[in-house]
Structures are given as C-alpha cells and as structure tokens.
Design a binder for these strands. Structure first.
Lengths: 222, 222
DNA sequence: ATGGAAGTGTAACAATTGTTACACTTCCAC
DNA sequence: GTGGAAGTGTAACAATTGTTACACTTCCAT
C-alpha cells in the first residue's frame, strides 16, 4: 500500500506538517480502510464529519430513482471528499463514493475543522480556496453541458485543453470517458470526432490531438 | 428605492445586526449604485473584494468567444455575488453581472472578510454554509443537464418541485425560462409538455402543474 | 506470446430535438 | 380599454443524436 502525504493535499497546503502522526493525533480523527469496489459512502447518508482521502482513489456516482447510474468524477488522494457538504444546510451526500483501489480515509469531526479554521488562517484560506475551486469546476462543467451540439462541446473542451493554440496536446480521457463527461452516446461522439477530422479541423493520433483550423473550431462554439 | 435588510442575507444570518450603519462603517466597505441594464461586473474582471447585493436584483450570464450568450441565474437582494470566487486560485469572474433594477452593491475588502471570519464563528459558519449550498445547487443542476431527453429533464425537475406527490404545485418559471434552464429549444419543450399532458402524465393550468401518474413520470427518468 | 478486456471506427436505421413560422392568448403599462 | 410585448400552441421539415451491431485494434496481465 502506498503511503500518505498530507502536505500534498490542497487543504494542507503551506501548513508544513513535519510530523503527520502528531498532527493527526491532535485532530482526534479516525482512520478507515477500504478495498477495491467497497461502497465507502452511500447516497443519502448524513455528512457530519470531514472526509479526507489519504491513499488510493475513489469514484463518485449518482443513482437516480429508477436505478440509472451517472458517474460524476474520480478523486485521487490526497484530497478531501465533499469538503463543502459538511457545512451545507442539507448535509446528505448526493452520491455514492466507491473505492477504485485500496483506500484509506481519515474522518475528522466537524468541531475539529471549525477549531482549525478559527486558529489557523492558512488552513482557513486553503479550505475556502478549495471550495471556491470546486465551484469553478462545476460552473465550467455546467457551461460545457449547456452547449447543445456534440461538436460544440468538443470545440469548447478541446480549445480549453489546447489553450487556444494549434500545438499538439494530450487528452487523458478515452472516447468513452469523454462521451460520459459530455453526457452523450459514445458512437455519436466518435462520429463527430471523425467528421471534424474529415473537415480538416483537427487531427487525432491516439490520445494526441491537434487543432488544425482554429477559426473553424471556434465557429462550432454555437 | 427599497431599503436594505442585512439580517435577511444568508451571510449575516444570526448576526443580529442592530445598527447597520455602524456595522458597515466598521467593515471599511464602499457602496456602489447602478441603474437598470448597467453592466456591474464584466466577465474576466479580477475579483479582489466581496460583493454583496443589498438592493435590487441582477442577472448573471456567460458570453462565449463567438459572442453567444448563456444566462445563468438571477440573484435577488440581499445576497452575496460569487462569494466563493474571492478565495479561488483563478479569481476572475466567469460571467457578466447586469442590473435588472435599481441596484445597490456593497464592496467589502477581502482582508475584512478574513478578519470577520477569524473573529466571528457565526459569520464563518454562514459563509461556509452559503458556499456549500451553492455547490449543491450547481451539482443538482449538473445532474439535471446530464439527463439526455427533455421529458427526462422535465420529470426530474417537476418531481422535485412536486416533492414526489400528486398535489398541484406552482412553477415560477415561464416555459421560455424553463427551456433556457434546461438548455433546450422552447418549442421542443412545449412539445414535450403537451405530449406528457396527452399521455395523462401531468396536467397544466397556467403555471399550476399536477402530476397525475407518478409511476409513468418516474419511468421518464432514464 | 497470448487471450481477453477495453477501446475505437463505422454503418443503417430510429428517435429526438432544433428551426422557422405563424396564430392565438395573456399580461401590463399607458 | 387598448396597444404592444411577452408567453404559448402547434405544424412541417431539417438536423442531430441515439441505438444496435459488428469488425478491428490496442493494451495488459498471466
């Protein structure tokens, strides 16, 4: 099993934790360990503590009333899980959390988080920044999903990845993952991609994409 | 012009502000006033202070590179505008903010917000709760947008509004607003609605909707 | 190296949604 | 009350996307 590295967690940024054990002892936290595919958190469950993923990776997914499953994201250690939820008025998890590996999670009581925030300005800044960054991620994903056509979504996504240049770049998601991210069918995504290649807008080799015609690409952003 | 009521703002909940003037003086804040249709905040602008909408209402909208406009939401006083943004790593507004009425906005320096949070646990709780609630709103909107069919979106939305009952309820949005909310074309939405009425799933009279067949409704949640 | 799983390309067809246009109704300010 | 704006209903047609199926490739663990 890998070891943990709290300093790499966005919440602990700049805290300079020398002695992890002492730090954690002080927080009155508890440790939990899970194996691959374990259900860590069940949708609807109350959130009354802070969950920090310290080792491994997890997947979050929403289950609709008729059993349909929608993946949201994967989270890799070290990162908090649903840091915002702890303080929300309706503090029930809106999703399942499932272990993708061997996983360790640290559970910290809300009161301890409050205390840390009141006494440590850096920690408070980190916590707020983390929440803010998540809000931004959600907002841009919303913007993406509100684009109606698949080519439009692709243009938005690829232009962002390419940082508006015509230099080659690597897309880490597979086509299937991209299709799920866009909430469209996989063959439809493949069709759009191959049409864009035919039209000389992009080129694709494995996971390396290149935008050939920036102007045509931007026209797709209807 | 209406008057302000800070105590009604979620950020000031339970602070019991008796003397608004004194409270605001203490915060070293500045006041800004806008008329209807004024551009209050421009997309891309840096966010280096806390913006609180104290009087009136505003609309936020994103402008894509080719000039396409997408409305996000309207905010009514008293509420913060983009409270999270202040602490994010990329603290530029992702949207325009436009006055819908006569508007007053209070601008509070980041340092003052930090100070308030460190010294006033209630304020900190409020701030965190507000961010957390916004995250939840965004998450459920994401879930909504990821549903592929219009009827599915309608089912999700209306079931939530009806709180899963077959009792009549009022939908505050017009069909056009709903269509924009779902990011679909207005006539398409109208078609879906009338088909659902024909199929005996719902009934509509003006803005009062009733779910007649809860089971059929839930089947639409693909 | 090899078998199986995962990922990709593509085709035919079905289903859904968008577009455009126009008539009609409701609402509201004057 | 009246005119105009906003909201709604609906139709024909175009465009896009989904579904299903299958062949092929790549990747990876044994």
């Amino acid at each position: 099993m890998k070891k943990r590295d709290l300093n790499a967690c966005p919440i602990c940024h700049n805290l300079n934790i020398d002695d992890e054990e002492a730090f954690l002892d002080d927080l009155k936290c508890t440790f939990r360990v899970y194996a691959k595919n374990d259900l860590i958190i069940q949708q609807g469950q109350l959130c009354e503590a802070f969950y920090m993923l310290t080792i491994g990776s997890v997947r979050t997914e929403m289950v609709s009333e008729n059993g349909n499953i929608m993946g949201i994201e994967t989270i890799e250690a070290p990162k908090p899980i649903a840091a915002a939820l702890l303080f929300s008025d309706n503090n029930r998890f809106q999703f399942n959390v499932i272990a993708l590996d061997d996983v360790e999670i640290i559970v910290i009581p809300k009161s301890e988080i409050m205390r840390m925030m009141m006494t440590n300005p850096d920690f408070m800044q980190n916590y707020l920044a983390h929440n803010a960054n998540r809000t931004q991620v959600l907002t841009s994903r919303l913007q993406l999903l509100s684009i109606k056509t698949i080519k439009g979504k692709l243009a938005h996504y690829l232009l962002e990845q390419a940082k508006n240049t015509d230099k080659p770049f690597t897309v880490s998601k597979t086509q299937s993952e991209l299709a799920e991210f866009f909430s469209v069918a996989r063959p439809s995504l493949a069709r759009s991609l191959s049409e864009m290649v035919q039209d000389g807008i992009i080129s694709i080799h494995r996971k390396v994409y290149t935008i050939i015609d920036l102007n045509k690409m931007k026209e797709l952003l209807v």
